[in-house]
Simulated scan of single mutants.
Amino acid sequence: MKNQNIYISVNLDMTTTKKGADLIHSVPIDRIVLETDAPFTKESKKRYDYKILEDTITQIAKIKKSNLEDVIIQIQANSKKILG
């Protein structure tokens, strides 16, 4: 049986490695949320603001070869589902 409660959190650093990009590519978009724990990304040591989240979503859309707006809408829906 498929577990409907499993999500993969993605941060900007993951989008820049082959292993991370392969994982993002393999996970259905309705199972992806954004990683918001700033200490766990190298990039966040330089900055952590809304722009880093935008950059992450942009990279996810590129990896998945998807429309940016569709990815934004789906990731927002995923987050709302988790947070209630």
Rank of each mutant, 00 (worst) to 15 (best):
1 M>C: 11
1 M>H: 14
3 N>E: 12
3 N>A: 11
4 Q>T: 14
4 Q>E: 14
4 Q>R: 13
4 Q>S: 14
5 N>V: 01
5 N>D: 15
6 I>A: 08
7 Y>P: 04
7 Y>D: 01
8 I>M: 04
8 I>C: 12
9 S>K: 07
9 S>W: 14
9 S>F: 08
11 N>V: 04
11 N>C: 14
11 N>L: 12
12 L>M: 07
13 D>I: 03
14 M>L: 12
15 T>R: 02
16 T>G: 03
16 T>K: 10
16 T>I: 00
16 T>A: 00
16 T>Y: 10
17 T>M: 03
18 K>Q: 09
18 K>Y: 08
19 K>P: 05
20 G>I: 03
21 A>H: 00
21 A>L: 07
23 L>I: 13
24 I>F: 08
25 H>N: 14
25 H>C: 12
25 H>M: 12
26 S>H: 07
28 P>G: 10
28 P>C: 13
30 D>V: 05
30 D>F: 00
30 D>R: 06
31 R>W: 01
32 I>A: 05
32 I>C: 06
33 V>Y: 04
33 V>S: 07
34 L>E: 09
36 T>L: 14
37 D>G: 06
37 D>N: 15
40 F>G: 03
40 F>K: 11
41 T>G: 15
41 T>A: 15
42 K>L: 14
45 K>T: 12
46 K>M: 14
46 K>R: 14
47 R>T: 10
48 Y>S: 11
48 Y>A: 13
51 K>S: 08
51 K>A: 07
52 I>K: 02
52 I>L: 11
52 I>V: 06
53 L>V: 02
54 E>M: 10
55 D>P: 01
56 T>P: 04
59 Q>T: 01
61 A>M: 01
61 A>Y: 02
63 I>K: 08
63 I>G: 10
64 K>Q: 05
64 K>T: 02
66 S>F: 06
66 S>Q: 09
66 S>V: 01
67 N>R: 06
68 L>K: 11
68 L>R: 11
70 D>A: 07
71 V>A: 03
71 V>H: 01
72 I>C: 09
72 I>Y: 12
73 I>L: 11
74 Q>F: 01
74 Q>D: 03
76 Q>V: 06
76 Q>K: 14
77 A>Y: 07
77 A>S: 15
77 A>R: 15
78 N>H: 02
79 S>F: 10
79 S>Y: 10
79 S>T: 15
81 K>W: 04
82 I>A: 02
82 I>S: 06
82 I>Q: 08
83 L>Y: 07
84 G>M: 09
84 G>F: 05
